[in-house]
Simulated assay, not measured.
Amino acid sequence: MAIVVEHDKRKHEILEKSLELFTREGYDDVTFQKIADACGITRTTLYIYFKNKREIFTWSIKQMTGELESRLMEILGDKNLSAEECLRQLMYWVIDTCNGNRPLFNVLLIYLINLQKTGASAEERVNRRVIRIKHLLSMIIIEGQKRGEFKKMPVKTVNNMLYSLVESAIFEIAVLNKKDVSEVKDSIDLVVQGLRK
């Protein structure tokens, strides 16, 4: 059992250090050797955990979105919050997290553009990583409707509208390099107010 724990712990450390490296140097400039060096291990040891750079990058993003989901579950689990407060906190936290990880989203943007050039579906890759977040948004909307806090509206449509605000924020952060996300938060407030009964 100790070997499995050590293996998982080392894998987690590799992913964290790799994500820092990708964020600092960009996807294209990071090599398998640079990752090994940053982790203080040999390339051979790194191959025990991952088969290539792309796999490390994908797992790094998966680990980050998993941590994001955990925090969102904490917000969702706070029974003292109304559905409106829960939705607002969740959306604000996602936007603030995106803003706080600005360099990562710059790297992700370049990665997705390059992926698209190869003929692979960037949309499919993104959807795999965000499906859980979209599900959590739907849960809050449904709960708010059940409690009578929100109007009866098509959940999928409301979800798409809220998620498009997240995408808009990421675009403003990664492409337009906007530092202030207050306009996106104002849009979130407007949408959430529009849901209230």
Rank of each mutant, 00 (worst) to 15 (best):
G77D: 15
L76N: 08
L90Q: 09
E55N: 04
M64W: 13
G66K: 10
D78Q: 13
D78C: 12
D28I: 07
D37L: 09
Q33L: 10
K53N: 07
I35S: 04
G77C: 07
T42L: 08
M91H: 06
V5G: 00
C39V: 09
S70W: 00
N80V: 01
G77N: 15
F50S: 07
E25R: 12
I48L: 13
L72T: 05
E85Y: 01
Q33I: 08
E69W: 00
I14T: 04
I61P: 00
F50P: 00
D78S: 11
C39L: 08
L15G: 05
L19M: 15
L15V: 02
D96H: 13
D8C: 05
S70T: 10
L87F: 03
C39Y: 04
M73A: 12
G66Y: 02
M64D: 11
I3V: 13
L87A: 12
I61V: 14
R88I: 11
E84A: 15
I56R: 05
L81V: 05
W59R: 13
K79F: 02
Y92I: 05
M73E: 15
K11M: 12
L46E: 08
V94S: 08
K17S: 10
L76I: 11
D28F: 01
T58A: 12
T58N: 12
K17E: 06
T42N: 08
I61W: 01
K79R: 15
T65I: 13
L46I: 09
E55I: 03
G66I: 03
R88K: 15
S70C: 02
E84Q: 14
F50Q: 03
Q89N: 14
G77A: 15
